[in-house]
Amino acid sequence: MLRAENLAVQRGSRTVLSDIDLALQPGEVLGVLGPNGAGKSTLLGALCGELPPSRGQVLLDQRRLGDWPGAERARRLAVLPQTSTLNFAFRVEEVVAMGRLPHASGQLRDAQIVGEALQAADAAHLAGRSYLALSGGERQRVHLARVLAQLWPGGEGQILLLDEPTSMLDPLHQHTTLQATRAFAERGAAVLVILHDLNLAARYCDRLLLLDRGRAHALGSPEQVLRAEPLQAVFGLEVLVQRHPQRGHPLIVAR
C-alpha cells in the first residue's frame, strides 16, 4: 500500500509540506481538505512521485516510489490532475484508451474496459465525440474515465489519486463522480481525493485529512474532523455542524 513517512516537501526555499505521516488503506476513500495553499496538491504531487520529498519518503509496498519501473508503477497508481492541457482533437474513447498504455491487455479487452470506465464516469454518451468539442465538466469526466481505465477493474493494492475531480461539475455529476469513486474503492483500491466541498467530503469519505499550512491539523473520521473548532481554526470560517437528517453524517452550514 501507499505510505508517506515523515514527509516534507520544499518548493524553492519554502517548506510547503512537513511532518506528514499517512497510509492509504485498501477499500477506503480518504478526503483531503484545507484552504487554498495549504499543500493539498503538493501532498498529491509527493504521493505520486512528481515532487521529490526533501525529507522522509513515500513507499509503495515497502519500496520507494522512485525505485519502481514506470509502467509497473502506472499499473498500480493512477493520478487525475486538477486541469488538463490536452489540445489535440482525439476522440473521447481515444483519450480514455490512453489509460491502457501501461498495459498489454490487447485491443479487445482494452476497448471493453474503455467502455466500462466511460460508463462508470457517466460519460458513455460522449463516445465518438472530439475531446476538444466537450465542455470543461465533460472533459473532467473523460479524464476520470481515463484514470479509472488505467486501474480497471480496480482491486486491492491499487491506488487512485484525484485532485479536485468535482471542481467543474454540476451538482448532479459531483455526486455521480464521487459515487463512482466510492464504487471503485469498494472493489479494493485505495483512493485519495482532494475536495473543497465539506459536505461532499462528509458524505463520501471514510477518513479525512485536514491540512493547514503544510501540516496535518486533523486526521480521522468525518465526525472527528468536521467539527466547528478545527474548521474555525483552519478555514477561519464559523460553521454550524448538524446531522444529515437521513444519512446521519455531519452537515456543515456557514453561520
Binding site: 505520486c48 512528481e50 492541457t85 498504455l101
Partner: peptide, 20 residues
Amino acid sequence: ARALNALLLGESEARHLGFG
C-alpha cells in the same frame, strides 16, 4: 508513437502513465 500520444496529455500525465 504511444509515448508521443501520452505526451499530448501533458508531461506529468505521461509520467503517470509510466513513460520516461
